[in-house]
Design a protein around this nucleic acid. Structure first.
Length: 428
RNA sequence: GGAGAGGUGGCCGAGUGGUCGAAGGCGCAGCACUGGAAAUGCUGUAUAGGGGCAACUCUAUCGAGGGUUCGAAUCCCUCCCUCUCCGCCA
């Protein structure tokens, strides 16, 4: 959420910055609303102050021996009553304004960072770096896509999964299930060795949590909702981990707090009918190991580089070629100020494909979730960062496509051998 | 799910209608004392919002929301949460 003070004092700045995202906004009405709300608040508190004075007078009079039912006391009572009713009227107006204001403010995305490159959509994202040698099919060789490999080697069953749930769900089996589990453990071990705190949070989250990280109110249709409770299936561990410290004041010397959280993630993928229907790329339920930082506002830029490096370390340990893209302003997610996407090479598809998204959110989520840090005497909103480290299903897809061999088996990187007990997947 | 107990500041804990944002203690910070420390003493020590250059000041907050009252931590209602016992259960 954006700062109300900024809205009151400099709405043009907000308009200009959100303009970089491609939004055309006239914030004058919202600014007027914010100012009106502030003025009403002042008026109300002055009235309340008057009411408090009267209340104290009554108390003193009665203590001093005045007749509680006498005319002097009664006159003050009447005054108190009048004020009470005036306050009630103002309060009602104030509440209405406030909820209007909050609703509209919560629907505005974060301001892009100054460093984020301007651009309209994903085509204007900027490649920052490449790592590894993308595997190309040699002459006469044809490389399979991961869904072909997976079905051939019996790593999962998509047909029967529809029976259990619906399309876009998958049942991993045999070495497929084992590989998924191995990857989760491998990733968590890698991150915790660097000092990340491993957490396994609730997968059902309440509305306040979703609002705190930015998924609500605007993106309700993206998440699955429980019918009888105020609970939703989390779309990403970012949601529960943000709320882990909701409404807290964290001593600055404890920062940064770094978490690595494994959770299944659930997304309705509304509006993606027909896209990536085969394999592991786009599922309603998928596993992800998420990296999350709570950090001091002064250090979030370096933190962003570091969290991205920590995600890249997984790809490098798994010998998966990738490139780092910096998202242009038009492609930034709702809560992000700046984002690096990591795209892994898929040899079968012959393309780079997003496998991690590492964002710095500035104080946007911290304001929504009321997470502050205390540095000596100053308390201020801290900064939050998140990054996938990594999406597990897509990692498996990349391993299958990049590791496929002539004989139909798949070679696994050395780093996974201790977790898999073998260096190859041959089905069966 | 049933029965009971309870939710007060960073922590413990007092407070059952008035001057209570809240005694006392612990913790923490500063100062004094000390060669240094401990002990001791003094002072300070919540959050959010509004106004002010600032000192400061106003409002709200004793789990949340509503009500009674001139006035609520205190009385009433609803909800949430925690604990104990019972039931169910991996």
């Amino acid at each position: 959420m954006l700062d109300q003070r900024l809205l009151r004092d400099d709405p043009e700045l907000i308009t200009a910055q959100l303009g970089r995202r491609g939004l055309k906004l006239d914030l004058a009405p919202l600014q007027a609303l914010a100012i009106q709300e502030r003025d009403l608040e002042s008026e109300r508190s002055e009235l309340q102050a008057e009411g408090n004075r009267i209340g104290k007078q009554v108390g003193q009079l009665i203590k001093g021996g005045a007749n509680p039912g006498g005319p002097e006391v009664q006159a003050l009572r009447d005054q108190g009553n009048t004020i009470k009713h005036q306050v009630a009227v103002l309060e009602e107006q104030e509440k209405a304004l406030e909820s209007q204001l909050r609703e509209q403010l919560q629907a505005l995305p974060n301001l892009p960072a100054a460093e984020a490159p301007d651009g309209r959509d994903e085509r204007e994202n900027v490649e920052v770096k490449r790592w590894g040698q993308p595997r190309q099919a040699s002459a006469g060789e044809s490389l399979e896509e991961h869904w072909q490999i997976g079905e051939r080697l019996n790593l999962w069953d998509s047909e029967r999964s529809v029976r259990i749930a619906q399309s876009r769900f998958i049942t991993l089996q045999g070495q497929g299930a084992r590989l998924e589990r191995a990857l989760i453990s491998f990733m968590l071990d890698l991150h915790t060795a660097k000092g990340y705190c491993e957490v396994m949070p609730p997968i059902l989250v309440n509305s306040a949590s979703l609002t705190g990280s930015g998924q609500l109110p605007k993106f309700a249709e993206e998440s699955f909702r429980c019918a009888d409770d105020d609970l939703w299936l989390t779309p990403t561990a970012e949601v529960p981990v943000t709320s882990l410290h909701r409404a807290e004041v964290i001593p600055a010397e404890q920062l940064p707090l770094r978490y690595a959280a494994y959770t299944p993630c659930f997304r309705r993928e509304a509006g993606s009918y027909g896209r990536d229907t085969r394999g592991l790329i786009r599922l309603h339920q998928f596993n992800k190991v998420e990296l999350y930082w709570f950090c001091h506002p002064e250090h979030s830029t370096e933190a962003h580089e570091q969290i991205t490096r920590d995600a890249e370390a997984v790809l490098e340990a798994l010998e998966l070629p990738y490139r780092r893209m910096e998202l242009c302003t038009g492609d930034l997610g709702f809560s992000a100020a700046r984002t690096y996407d990591l795209e892994v090479w898929l040899a079968g598809a012959g393309a780079y494909r997003e496998i991690s998204s590492c964002s710095v959110c500035g104080d946007f989520q911290a304001r929504r979730s009321a997470i502050r840090c205390k540095d000596g005497k100053t308390t201020q909103l801290l900064h939050t960062l998140n990054g996938s480290g990594l999406a597990v299903g897509r990692t498996m897809a990349a391993l299958l496509e990049n590791g496929q061999k002539d004989d139909g088996s798949v070679r696994l990187p050395a780093a996974l051998v201790p977790y898999m007990g073998t260096d190859r997947i041959s089905g069966g």
